[in-house]
């Protein structure tokens, strides 16, 4: 028996919005420690890695490790049926063919359940190596989304450059060029509005706008986003998910020919 209950059910709705444009299907791995999902997009340019810790749920029971292959378009349709304030429970038997989503209204007067067929997916399990990043930028998630959206009008790529002076986002194309520079916040009352930079060495890499814009679909999950960059390593874009876990996106840089 598997059962995971989350009072803040809207988190699941937001997670699906954050992955469904990048991935069509994925395996949800459930175990004692919690729920994880790891999958590359079809082009193998980016990787999504989601981790939800069991202790972050209001109720969590997992008698046996199980892997549930789901069509994320279908799962998203189901989660759209949940109200923003609903309590969401995901339930499955051992060796399941189906998974059940139960939505309860806050006052307990409405309960709905949706059963979805699982898929048998033959996906690779990947290990993400630990690394010390040359630059780690933390900034408001909304600001990052805005910059990606604005600069996408100028070209297919965004150059992210990080130095002691700050972080710079640049794009250029047929209509001209654009630069957005952010300095490290000197005096911040609200932590979530801060821009902070930890730098070992300056870096500058080029990334595809299309994928950065997919990643920013996670913006409603978190006030801040963390961008980690190193030579010879993919960009990591991380959004914390309350006190339950995080979603990380990895993106291979574009390479000069």
């Amino acid at each position: 028996m598997f059962e995971a209950r989350l009072a803040k059910g809207a988190i699941f709705k937001k997670i699906l919005e954050a992955v469904k444009d990048l991935l069509t299907e994925a395996s949800w791995d459930c175990g004692d420690m919690g729920i994880t999902l790891q999958a590359m997009d079809n082009a193998h340019v980016s990787l999504v890695s989601l981790n939800l810790r069991s202790d972050g749920f209001d109720k969590y029971r997992c008698d046996r490790n199980l892997t549930m292959g789901m069509n994320l378009g279908s799962m998203s349709k189901i989660l759209k049926c949940a109200g923003n304030d609903d309590i969401v429970t995901i339930r499955a038997q051992d060796n399941p063919d189906t998974v059940t989503f139960v939505f309860e209204s806050e006052n307990g007067e409405k309960q709905s359940d949706y059963e979805m067929k699982l898929m048998s997916l033959d996906l690779e399990h990947l290990q993400i190596p630990e690394t010390e990043y040359a630059c780690v930028v933390k900034m408001p998630a909304g600001e990052f989304a805005r910059i990606c959206r604005d600069l996408s009008q100028f070209g297919d790529s965004i150059v992210i450059s990080c130095s002691k002076q700050g972080v710079k986002f640049s794009a250029s194309g047929d209509i001209g060029s654009a630069n957005v520079k952010l300095a490290q916040s000197s005096n911040v009352d609200k932590e979530e509005e801060a821009v902070t930079i930890e730098m070992q060495e300056p870096v500058s890499f080029t990334y595809a706008c299309r994928y950065l814009n997919f990643f920013t679909k996670a913006t409603p999950l978190s006030a801040q986003v963390k961008l980690s960059m190193s030579p010879e390593y993919p960009l990591m874009v991380e959004y914390a998910i309350d006190d339950i876990g995080q979603i990380r996106y990895f993106l291979a840089p574009k390479i000069e020919d």
Partner: peptide, 14 residues
Amino acid sequence: TTTQGRLDSFFKVL
């Protein structure tokens, strides 16, 4: 011109 890199070589298949 730039080419889009892929991730295959970064992650170890378990």
